[in-house]
């Protein structure tokens, strides 16, 4: 299905946030996820289903002033 991931249209196989995170081999400790403008807590990733057209933002800390 197609979702918008970090602003870009993406075709994904994952059906939950947890599967999405592991499909990109992301370190869960290093990221924060926002699903349709709402922060998705880590504890909910396994049970949060993805739907067509969802807007997912995955962010992490970088150097900054």
């Amino acid at each position: 299905m197609q979702i918008k991931l970090n602003g870009e249209p993406k075709e994904i196989q994952a059906s939950t946030l947890e599967q999405l995170v592991s499909s990109y081999r992301l370190n869960p400790e290093a990221i924060v996820i926002e699903l349709n403008n709402v922060i998705a807590r880590k504890q909910t990733w396994a049970t949060t289903a993805l739907n067509i057209g969802d807007r997912v933002e995955i962010v992490s800390f970088v150097g900054g002033g």
Binding site: L5, N6, G7, Y24, R25, L26, N27, E29, A30, I31, V32, E57, I58, V59, S60, F61, V62, G63, G64, G65
Partner: peptide
């Protein structure tokens, strides 16, 4: 201080937090 940015899904970059000394206070 640290900033927040979209992660680059193509390359798995080192997490900055693992380079910071323990007990450092983060100011996002």
């Amino acid at each position: 201080t640290v900033a927040l940015r979209r992660i680059d899904l193509e390359k798995n970059e080192d997490n900055i937090l693992s380079y910071l000394p323990e007990n450092i206070l983060l100011l996002t």
